[in-house]
Amino acid sequence: MAVAVWAIAFTRNLFSVVVLSGVYSFLMATVLVALDAVDVAMTEAAVGAGVSTVLLLAALRLCKSEEAKPAHKPWLPLAVSVSTSVLLVYGAWGLPDFGDPEAPIHKNVVPRYLNNEVDVPNVVTAVLASFRAYDTLGETVVVFTAGAGIIALLRRRKKNPDNKGGGA
């Protein structure tokens, strides 16, 4: 995965960048399966490797697929990134250990979720649609809004005189 990230940062042909990011998404999905997040892995494989690769390619077709040579030397961003990472790693030492069952994240509301109150074996679905239904409603509205925004940005007004509904 580190190799894929490195290649994404330093490849100048955008087509290979997009394909590499698809590869990266699949690797990420396998990591997520190893971390027991099967639902998330499924979504990541379908969205990250499938849909977003296609969208990036579709956008590339409308733009130039070669990146210009960077005009500045990347020393300032590099310095910012390295110092941020040092700070974050230092901060990470205060977090609970990996896989620690006594960590606060496992203590508050989660035992209730795992209690199977609504009799749905897949706890992720139960929490998504029942316990946290307001969250999911909000997310759905966000997706809807993004769709509406894209319609507003990319709709062609002249060519479709009989198609007036919606954005723009």
Binding site: L35, D36, A37, D39, V40, T43, E44, V47, G48, V51, S52, L55, L56, A58, A59, L62, C63, I105, H106, V109, V110, Y113, L114, V123, V124, V127, L128, R132, D135, T136, E139, V142, V143, A146, G147, G149, I150, L153, L154
Partner: peptide, 29 residues
């Protein structure tokens, strides 16, 4: 069982992420 709560949050975040990515691409175009 592993903790289901982060899975729920991230599951929705991925789909929202791709929508916002597409919005960004539309702006780029």
């Amino acid at each position: 069982y592993s903790n289901p709560l982060p899975h729920v949050l991230i599951l929705t975040a991925i789909v929202v992420g791709v929508s916002t990515l597409a919005l960004g691409l539309a702006l780029t175009v």
